[in-house]
Design a protein around this nucleic acid. Sequence first.
DNA 1: ACAATGCTTCGGTTAGGATCGAAGTATGAA
DNA 2: TTCATACTTCGATCCTAACCGAAGCATTGT
Lengths: 228, 228
Amino acid sequence: MKEGPDIAQIGALIGDPARANMLTALMGGKALTATELAAAGGITVQTASTHLAKLEAGNLLAQRKQGRHRYFTLADDSVGKFLESIMGFAAGRGHLRHKPGPKEPALRKARICYDHLAGDYGVRMLDSLIARGAIDAFGDGLAVTESGETALKSIGIDVHALRSLRRPLCRSCLDWSERRAHLAGSLGKALLSNFLDKGWARRTAESRSVIFSPEGERQFLALFPAAK
Amino acid sequence: MKEGPDIAQIGALIGDPARANMLTALMGGKALTATELAAAGGITVQTASTHLAKLEAGNLLAQRKQGRHRYFTLADDSVGKFLESIMGFAAGRGHLRHKPGPKEPALRKARICYDHLAGDYGVRMLDSLIARGAIDAFGDGLAVTESGETALKSIGIDVHALRSLRRPLCRSCLDWSERRAHLAGSLGKALLSNFLDKGWARRTAESRSVIFSPEGERQFLALFPAAK
DNA sequence: ACAATGCTTCGGTTAGGATCGAAGTATGAA
DNA sequence: TTCATACTTCGATCCTAACCGAAGCATTGT
């Protein structure tokens, strides 16, 4: 007893439905205002304000004042990764929502995991990159190979520039729907941005799901053929 | 909002201090009775009983009746791995216990993580096995090499027999104190048992920490030299 | 200066659930 | 059978924390 870190504190933070919904909303990667988060949690702004203060005190959230707005985001990508892993665990234990809504399939296919692509397509992308030798996987780490760097350059991603950032280039993130790893880190983020910029896909307003255009989907699947 | 698995449920399960303490106690790997768990949680047996029922309903615990005792364990090793990862996250966010007791250093050095070795020594062991080529690491997976199988045989571990179990042979588990991976899975379990059987180390009654004998420590360090 | 918007703080209510005493059930021992 | 132990269920209490209305700041716009 009374050993190690206090897991009850974060458990309690995540254990409240309103807070859990707000955190889930922030997994979409966009910075949201207190009012928007109140709506996401299904509560009034006053209540949301106290919740947000608690989450911030627990180092799960960061806020940025901008004019009279206050934008909240997850404190960093490790929070997103952590939440995703809880979702995976919860799904494996049968802790699902009462009714899997119509959006559920779309979420499983492709969604945003804080700032990178997750779901079936996210997993497929990483598998494909590894299969063609663009990414080397060893241990829990991932690394871009020389040939991978060239290949990524051709689709408009400057790996060299990404390397200079403080944030890790490649990181694996466990996918709750697929139960496999997908690509996080600054490269994961850059790839998603790339697809969005090209118009291959767009993020939806209310949900974390990512919608591919027919042409974008064709290009994506061609670029990342199924591994094996 | 209302997307994906329900993280609030498990958050709430772990968020209660009494339940968190009981779960932490079960990370020691031993099956404990309701009475013992009540003591670990600092509550009466009646209260513990209701908590245990909830944890079991949430698929976090499994119980086994034996005479008039009821032994509880974590539902499976993935629960242990999950709890360990929460501890790592909590530690990284500064959610520590009020006062790091005197047992803390011992815990960081070597402790039991459900059924395998964790802490500094656990991480060192895996690093060393990888460095000498006994274990291959790729992706998030680990695999024993042929030479590794032979080497393990020489210290009394039958990898072939372990393979036939349903449980994965090697698995990496993120260590909360070291923030690096250590070895879980049936091989991790077998290695720990091996050390205990040989008398190199012993588990303590009340804590998760593992105490090495002077001679056992010497042997262990020689067998797993620091990598790099 | 004044109004409007976004958010926080205060105060008081309410509900959920953690808690324990007491009683009830099951298993084993004498 | 009778008693003891291990645990669960019931009932009642109590306390925390979630919640919202109202008021208070802060920032922007007119």
